[in-house]
Every structure is written in C-alpha cells, then in structure tokens.
Measured scan of single mutants.
Amino acid sequence: MSRESDVEAQQSHGSSACSQPHGSVTQSQGSSSQSQGISSSSTSTMPNSSQSSHSSSGTLSSLETVSTQELYSIPEDQEPEDQEPEEPTPAPWARLWALQDGFANLECVNDNYWFGRDKSCEYCFDEPLLKRTDKYRTYSKKHFRIFREVGPKNSYIAYIEDHSGNGTFVNTELVGKGKRRPLNNNSEIALSLSRNKVFVFFDLTVDDQSVYPKALRDEYIMSKTLGSGACGEVKLAFERKTCKKVAIKIISKRKFAIGSAREADPALNVETEIEILKKLNHPCIIKIKNFFDAEDYYIVLELMEGGELFDKVVGNKRLKEATCKLYFYQMLLAVQYLHENGIIHRDLKPENVLLSSQEEDCLIKITDFGHSKILGETSLMRTLCGTPTYLAPEVLVSVGTAGYNRAVDCWSLGVILFICLSGYPPFSEHRTQVSLKDQITSGKYNFIPEVWAEVSEKALDLVKKLLVVDPKARFTTEEALRHPWLQDEDMKRKFQDLLSEENESTALPQVL
C-alpha cells in the first residue's frame, strides 16, 4: 500500500538533515546492470571481512566470479597478432551492500547512478522477487541517484539526491524531493519508509565518522582530508542543518603536550582565546566558526575552494607581477588587521594563504593565525623552527619566545613576496656552502639577476625593505602599504570589485 501522500506532506515541511535544493538533472540513458558494476546475484546478508577486503582492492568479489566451465583457453599460436591488451577495470570509489532480497550489490565505478523502476536507470528495480513485494509499487520510476562531484583539492564528494514520490531516507532522515545531501561511510539508505532499509553505503575513500566526538558529529558530517601540516590535519565537512561546506582543523593534544602547556602557563585558556579569535572579522582572514574541545581540538573554519598559494608557486613557478601585487596587498591588509588586534601570526607561508577560486584574479585569505593562542608560545615555536624557511632572523637566534615582536610577520611576508615574484625561495638548504640558518640570520638571500630583470624596481625595493635583518629597521605593514609599488588604483579597484562580488555589503578597509 502506498504512503505517498503521508511522505509528500513530510517532504513539504523539509528536513533537518544536511540537504539543499538542487537544479534539474539530465537523465542518464539506460545500460545493462552488469556493465555498471552490479553483481549478477542479489543478497540479503552483509559481507564478511574477506569479501570486503577483496573488493576494496579493486579485484572481483566472490559475488562477481564466473564459473571456469564457461571459459576456455586460447593457445598462444592462435592469439590474433593485432589484439590489444584489455584496459584494467577501474577501482570502485564506493560500494552499496544490499540489505534485502531482490536488490543486488553495487560497485560504484562510474560517477553517476540512477536507481528506480524505469529501465533507463543504471540500477533498475526489475528483479522478479522484488516485483512480488508489497513495497515495489511505492518505488518511483526514478527514485534517487548517487553521484560524486569534484571538491576541494581535486578530491571527490559523494551525494545522494531524492527524486521520489514516497521519499528517500539516509539514516532515517528524509532527504526531500529535489534535494541532495552528502553521503558518508556506513550510511543506511531506506526507500519509501524510513524503516525500509535497502542499502548500506560504503565510501571507500573516507574514514568512519565514529572516531570523532559526538558533539562534533551532531553538527557536522566529516568527509575527506584536505591537507595536513606540522600543526594538524584539515578535513572537509558539512553543516548538517545547511549542507554548507566547512573546513575542520584537528590539532592533536598529545603531539603538542597541550596539557603540560596549560600547567606551565595557567593563564592559557584555550576556550577564552578561541572566543576572541571567533570575533575577528576581516575579508582577508579565514573566519573561525566553531570550536570543540575533546581528546583533540577541532576548529571549524570557513572553507576556501581555490587551494593554497603554495600550489601556484611550487615547482619554480612565478606569478605575474600584477597578480603578485593583488595578492600581496590583501596579505598586508590581513596581517595589519591581526597586528591591530594584538595577534602575531608567526607562521606566514604560502600554505597559509588560501585562494577563493581558481581564477588568477581572486580574493585571498590568511589562515592559521591563532596557533600560539591554542598551542602555547613554546610549543608552537619548537614546531616552526623545524622548517625555518620563512622564519625571521630574530626568531632563530632567540631562546624560547623572548626578543621578537610583530616584525617577524613582515619578514615572512618579504619571503613570500620574493617567491611569488621570482619563482624560487630566497633562502634554501640546497645552497650547501652556507647553512639555512646562517643565510637567514645574515640576510644573504639568493639573488639571480636574469630572473629579477623581469621584475620592476619598485617591487624589488619593497622586497629589500622587508628582508632587513634588524627588526627595528624592517618595514611595518603600514609602511609597506604606503610603498610606491602598491599605489596602484587599478589594483585596488579590482580588489574592491572582487569584494563586491563576494558580498555587496563588504567595504574596502581604510588604508593610510
């Protein structure tokens, strides 16, 4: 008996699950189920560990084997000379395990699969056993689809999209007709009724959600790893209520002995410091949205989908001078704002400069500016000194954290500008005749005249004003913003236009 009217009423009120309206889709043409990776026989039982391990490696599972009696060998002398080797079968990115008779397991190899009674669906509900069930008529011709799209860092995100009359449910929550939600590992998919569980979705590319604290899981769906560094790992996640993407940084307390840091400095109150950081608001710094204190720290951040500045300059790639100017102007505005709010970044580098898009002209935002507030000064500097390429001379020669101030950030900005303009770092371990530390503390950077011949004198002058060993003589952010190279009204107008595109209400910060 159909429950279409009941569920449609529920759909009209929406769902609290991570779902959002989605535009129309072009329906895929039908194809045989076997060619799409559906096993030839149905099963109602969950797999054992041996079955799972075989399939996850990209080899055929026991459900897909063919009797050897149906095959015969071709003698080598009868092999056609022009026969080309077969292409290897792509490894599946996800697996659906059937929970009921009449449904088959599915190895997801393609990027898009339609499910329903219509014969054009890649996964067609046409098993005779299924057709005899009382629920068969409640399934729509095109009930739902599972697909994946390219996300940040060229990774993939799996989604389920509801197109049914009676509802598609993920972990008992209604997706909603015309809406989608991301699928995470071990999600249970039910059709027409929330208790009519048909599939379990296994994402073969992500970790299980159960490793994360419950308070975090209640608000966010964790997904793929976006990156990792000395101070922690960053994962893509989704807000459950809105389906908006965020980035979540995970900082290990054990790695940084944060408990010991608190004992050594009783004034170090991470929760208080995070609340201060959350109040920071500038178009060129990453917004801190939320914070969870569990076995590790979880910092929920605004997501930038254009990648890191590092990706644009790695491998001796240089940027156009006009692009360097647009990016560097924004970096200076961001660091100036942090300094005005009493925050020294201490870890400025291309990896911590994020881009809003893949376009050459785009907004940038500074991230990882609050680590000293979370990890403690000593722990952070011990970590950073392991990779000193961007560290100021006074940091390398000081004991502990004494003896330096916000000028350290201006040195790091000078190193970043040098790399963007030239395509190579000013200080490098590859210069074996002088140690990296000695290069930095003496201010002897690697200047290649033929490379810098293409760079304007004004740009080079600003680099020199920032890479000054004496912090008292080094340019401040205010002085850098007043430098002739940055007195470019076309560049500032472009920045204002980019801000307006992102948010019509965002105004250009005042600069002296």
Rank of each mutant, 00 (worst) to 15 (best):
S140K: 02
I74A: 10
Q34N: 08
A94W: 01
A91S: 07
K141L: 05
N186T: 05
G229W: 05
V7Y: 09
D118S: 14
Y139K: 03
R217T: 05
P90S: 07
L71M: 10
E76Q: 15
K253N: 05
W97H: 05
F103G: 08
A261S: 05
F169G: 04
D77T: 05
G23S: 07
E70W: 05
S42I: 05
A94E: 02
R180P: 01
G151D: 08
Y159I: 13
E149K: 10
I221V: 08
S50R: 13
P88E: 04
K214Q: 02
E219M: 07
S12G: 10
I74Q: 12
S24R: 06
Q209V: 10
M222A: 00
F115M: 11
P85S: 10
Y123S: 14
S252C: 04
V198H: 01
E4I: 10
S120Q: 15
D77A: 09
Y156T: 10
S35P: 09
K177I: 10
D126R: 07
S55V: 08
A98I: 05
S155A: 12
F238V: 07
T26F: 13
Y212W: 14
R181C: 04
F201P: 01
L268M: 14
K235N: 07
S28W: 07
L63V: 07
A91R: 07
T133E: 04
I248P: 00
E4Y: 14
Q78T: 03
N105D: 07
L130T: 14
H143A: 02
F115Y: 02
T43P: 03
E122V: 14
L99R: 14
V234C: 15
V175G: 04
P75D: 14
S192T: 01
S16Q: 09
R254G: 03
A9T: 07
C121S: 10
V66C: 08
S28F: 14
S73R: 05
R148K: 14
Y72G: 14
V206Q: 13
F201T: 00
K179A: 06
S5C: 12
I221P: 00
K244V: 12
S260Q: 01
Q83K: 08
V109G: 14
L236T: 07
A94T: 03
A91M: 03
S44W: 06
S12E: 13
D265R: 12
P80R: 10
Y72N: 15
Y72I: 09
Q10C: 07
N166A: 07
T59R: 07
P90D: 03
L129M: 08
F115G: 02
T65A: 08
K253H: 02
E122R: 14
L226D: 01
G151R: 06
E87S: 09
N154V: 02
A247H: 01
Q209K: 13
G167Q: 01
V211N: 15
K142E: 12
Y123I: 14
D218A: 12
T225G: 05
E122Q: 11
G37K: 15
R240D: 09
E263M: 10
E84I: 07
K135G: 06
I160M: 12
D218E: 06
V246K: 15
P182S: 13
T65Y: 03
P128H: 07
S32M: 04
A98L: 03
Y139F: 11
W114S: 07
G259K: 13
D203W: 00
E173Y: 15
I157F: 06
Y139S: 02
V66D: 12
E263P: 15
R145M: 12
E76P: 05
A257W: 04
I250S: 13
I146F: 11
Y136Q: 03
D77M: 10
N185R: 13
D203P: 00
D218C: 04
P88C: 00
I146R: 01
R148S: 11
Q100C: 12
I74G: 14
L99Y: 12
K249V: 03
S62W: 07
Q27V: 10
S19N: 04
F144L: 05
E79G: 06
D77E: 06
R217M: 13
G23V: 08
D126S: 09
H22V: 06
L268F: 09
F256R: 09
S52D: 02
S155P: 14
R180V: 03
I160R: 02
S228N: 14
A104V: 04
E87H: 02
D265E: 06
L174M: 04
T242Y: 01
E219Q: 08
G227C: 12
E161I: 15
V25M: 06
Q20C: 02
P47Q: 02
L130G: 06
D101C: 14
T242R: 07
N269Q: 04
E87I: 09
I38D: 13
I189S: 08
V7G: 12
F147V: 03
R240K: 09
K153R: 02
D218G: 07
H163W: 10
V200E: 10
A264V: 04
V170I: 10
Q10R: 12
R181L: 03
E81N: 07
S42Q: 12
G23A: 06
E87Y: 11
Q10D: 12
R240V: 11
G102D: 07
E79L: 09
V109H: 11
H163Q: 12
S120N: 08
P21N: 05
N269A: 02
S67F: 05
E271V: 13
E149Y: 00
G116N: 00
T89M: 15
S53I: 15
V175C: 11
K255V: 05
G165F: 13
